[in-house]
């Protein structure tokens, strides 16, 4: 039985077994590889997406759990890479290898939606779900502060 939900505003039906993590359905069946696989166990945040606006580890959400809900991935965060967080990310030159950055950006966007003017402590606490092995943390903080200032 197909599972129906929305991805980046588009209605989709997928045929994956219902316990398949959303991550793999997005990446393989729906061909949206911007959402990354880092650990598969909810430890790194590389797979972060929004489900009905709330950030969610897509490696931990069985695809059945998003039936009839609305999923946003990095590909759908903005039409022209112009979400305030994306703009701030470039202005602060955050990415190194870049592999964690989809997840970082999705986390940051969720943070700013709930807390448009987060304190530094709030940023640090919220973003500690996401590992960046390249160590871009200082720039992530600066970029979130910039996005909060400029949006």
């Amino acid at each position: 039985m197909a599972i129906s939900f929305k991805v980046n505003g588009r209605a989709v039906d997928v045929n994956a077994p219902p316990d398949t993590p959303l991550l793999w359905v997005l990446r393989e069946e729906l061909k949206l590889p911007g959402t990354k696989f880092g650990c598969g166990v909810g430890q790194c945040g590389a797979c972060m997406v929004h489900v009905d606006g709330d950030r969610t580890f897509s490696c931990q959400a069985p695809v059945a759990a998003v039936a009839h809900r609305s999923v946003t991935t990095i590909e759908g965060l903005s039409a022209h890479s112009d979400h305030p967080v994306q703009k701030a990310w470039l202005a602060e030159r955050v990415p190194q290898c870049g592999y964690c950055q989809s997840g970082q950006i999705m986390s940051a966007a969720a943070l700013l939606k709930d807390h448009p003017h987060p304190t530094r402590a709030q940023i640090v606490e919220y973003m500690s779900t996401n590992i960046c092995r390249c160590g871009t943390y200082p720039r992530i903080v600066r970029a979130i502060e910039r996005a909060a200032r400029e949006s």
Binding site: P33, I74, G98
Partner: peptide, 9 residues
């Protein structure tokens, strides 16, 4: 490479 690393491309 950087602009491609903020939009998943």
């Amino acid at each position: 490479d950087m602009p491609h690393k903020v939009n998943g491309t």
